[in-house]
Amino acid sequence: MKVQISDREGRHHSVVWEQGQSLMEVLRDCDMVLALCGGNCICGTCHVYVDAETFARLPARNDEELAQLEQMKGFRPEASRLSCQIPFLHAREGMSVVLAPNE
C-alpha cells in the first residue's frame, strides 16, 4: 500500500505502508517525524493533516488525541490527526498526508 506524503519543505514522497504499522511508524521509518512519546498520544510530534476524504473515513478522534491536538498552534479541526492513532486498518491506497509544522 502506498501513501503520498508532503514533507515540511513541501516535497512529495510516495511511501510504502506495511501491514501492522501505524501511520506514525511509517513516517518515523522515513525520519519524517520524531514520535517522541512512542505512540502514546502525548507529545504531538507526529501531527499530520490528512485529506478530506480520509478524514471523513477515519474514526473520530478520542478525547486524548483531541486534547493534545487542541494545544497545538497548527491545529486544523477539519484535518489534524496524530498519526500514531491511525492503524493500518485505515490505510487507503493513494491517501495524502501533509506533515504539520514542528512546534
Binding site: 511508524e25 518515523r28 521509518d29 520524531l34 517522541l36 507529545c43
Partner: peptide
C-alpha cells in the same frame, strides 16, 4: 527537553 531530545532522536528509531 524536546529541544535536546530532537537533536538525537533520529539515531534511536527502530530502523
Amino acid at each position: 527537553h524536546m529541544r535536546l531530545r530532537a537533536a538525537v532522536a533520529h539515531v534511536f528509531t527502530p530502523k
